[in-house]
């Protein structure tokens, strides 16, 4: 299953909820303000790093770049463009948007 998260992890619980319910082997795509969770050396990066052991985490590159985050993305988080977003949706049986 693919999960999308579009909220900053510093102000909202969307990512936390997502990670609580995302089962082993799921994919999590960070979009919009959700991409702030992809940054290294933040208060939430340990949580994200831990999650990387059980789920694959992607971040939407246009949103990363718009926010000037392109040089701060932590190792292990994969960047995709909108075409990659489409592929992820096609590859998974359903999508849960953590709005």
């Amino acid at each position: 299953m693919l999960h999308t998260v579009n909220k900053s992890p510093f102000e909202h619980k969307a990512l936390e909820s997502c990670l609580k319910f995302a089962r082993q082997g799921s994919a999590v795509l960070l979009i919009e303000d959700g991409v702030y969770a992809a940054a290294r050396d933040t208060a939430v990066s340990p949580q994200v790093q831990k999650a990387l052991h059980s789920v694959t985490i992607y971040a939407l590159k246009p949103d990363v770049e718009a926010r000037g985050m392109q040089n701060r993305v932590m190792d292990g988080v994969r960047l995709v463009d909108y075409g990659g977003f489409v592929d992820l949706v096609a590859e998974h049986n359903a999508v849960q948007s953590w709005l």
């Binding site: 299953m1 609580k20 319910f21 995302a22 089962r23 049986n93 359903a94 999508v95 849960q96 948007s97 953590w98 709005l99």
Partner: peptide, 16 residues
């Protein structure tokens, strides 16, 4: 949470 995750995983369409 574990059971809820199972329920979610079994769906075709998830509306939020």
């Amino acid at each position: 949470a574990e059971r809820m995750a199972e329920i979610m995983e079994a769906q075709d369409v998830i509306l939020s």
